[in-house]
Design a protein around this nucleic acid. Structure first.
Lengths: 239, 239
DNA sequence: GCTAATTTGTTCGTATGTATA
DNA sequence: CTATACATACGAACAAATTAG
């Protein structure tokens, strides 16, 4: 382990070697065992493990105890178009997938300051909180937490549970149309509860979309915070 | 280390202890040294380090060599509005910050299949690749890789280096106006090179924005791929 | 179905390097 | 300059899951 020895740490040089080996396909679908790599690169097994850990964090590798370390297949991401008229059910059907929304949890809550500002209501106003899981073809695509004004949509929980669709649930309340006012995107490590629902490892990354929908009079209908698996989804915006 | 010993690994239990200690503020702004934590929890220093590493990956902690391990202040994210007329310089000035774009690297390349599709040109067409770093108030906000048709913008590299702005560089080529056609958002772990430029730890998360800008005739001007620190930025879309 | 070998995961010990106070 | 504190690296042992025979 003494090639072009810059001021770079040993495990980083090992990681770089592995990276090119993977890119060239010289290491194949599955990496040699850690002990063999350690021998090959003349380093301690811990050093190899540190390098693998780094590449696993990038999503390039995946280690499975007792089985080995594997090169992750770069699968194309599923596109999720976001626009003024974003509807989940329409999005997934556009991909030839069967949409399904399942109610995870519902709750009566009071608006805190942030929710009151987003929903343009008083602090402490009664809201319904709906936690939902969206699935297409058996693959979980997102978990979403939505807040609705309780006075305006008193039966939203039941309607959603029956239809599995926010659009349909709102229709049953007489709201025929709504649109997306604003979408804020960021990303973070997945929360343990979401990781379960989305079938993600505990260190996975989720795209977080915080959005507000309004009716034709620009009155806020719902504030929602959706979490998407970043390795399976991309959000697409076209003005 | 023998409290409620479930089937959880030692370093995870240490991490959980640290997490509650941080939440309660019992550990203060700065953690005790690793050796002291190891003694306190009756584990090896490596086990403490594994726990700290995990919490650092979540963004909760930040270790600095020779100084100590610190609790990260949860700072509000900087909003980056994205729309048909997205201009980086306008965005940052809107926040009362001084914009600055610095050329990291430039290169002549040929369009591969994906680039050719995005830029509506032939595969193999000559392009200029510009890698740029955007900074506001000394804080790096994004690294961006842009591809421009070489025949149409032969002096784009020099113009950008002189002005530090894509908008200005395009103006010097006679292009007065352009707009955003499409923006695709996803997220991933930061690449080592980007981590350096953005002053991020090697396991940080970046928002990745892949976008295409077009001129008034809808002809593609540039294809770009920008990386934003996910813990410092949010992307805001308003139709 | 059971056992042994293989392979990754965890935990300890020890030593040295490097940046900071 | 010295002490402190995190970073890297090696070695050893065992645990846990999987696979091969």
């Amino acid at each position: 382990m003494n090639d072009t020895d810059e001021g770079v740490t040993l495990w980083r040089r090992v990681a770089d070697r592995l990276r090119v080996g993977i890119a060239e396909g010289a290491l194949g679908d599955r990496l040699p065992p850690e002990t063999e790599l350690a021998e090959r690169y003349a380093v301690n097994r811990h050093t190899v493990r540190r390098a693998i850990q780094s590449l696993a964090a990038e999503g390039l590798l995946r280690s499975e105890r007792g089985r080995g370390t594997f090169v992750n297949a770069a699968s194309p991401r599923l596109s999720y178009p976001v626009g003024p008229r974003t509807r989940f059910s329409e999005n997934v059907t556009a991909h030839g997938q069967r949409p399904a929304g399942r109610l995870i949890r519902s709750e009566s809550v009071r608006a805190d300051k942030a929710l009151a500002a987003m929903l343009d209501c008083a602090t402490g106003a009664p809201l319904f909180r709906l936690d939902t899981l969206s699935v297409a073809n058996g693959l979980p695509l997102s978990v979403s937490t939505g807040f609705f004004p309780a006075d305006r949509f008193p039966a939203i929980v039941r309607h959603y549970a029956e239809t599995g669709s926010v659009t349909e649930a709102l229709k049953l309340h007489g709201l025929l149309d709504y649109r997306r006012l604003e979408t804020r995107i960021t990303a973070e490590h997945v929360q343990p509860i979401d990781a379960e629902h989305l079938h993600l490892p505990p260190d996975a990354i989720v795209l977080v979309s915080a959005a507000v929908d309004v009716d034709a009079d620009c009155r806020p209908i719902q504030a929602m915070r959706s979490r998407f698996p970043a390795d399976r989804m991309e959000l697409v915006f076209r003005p």
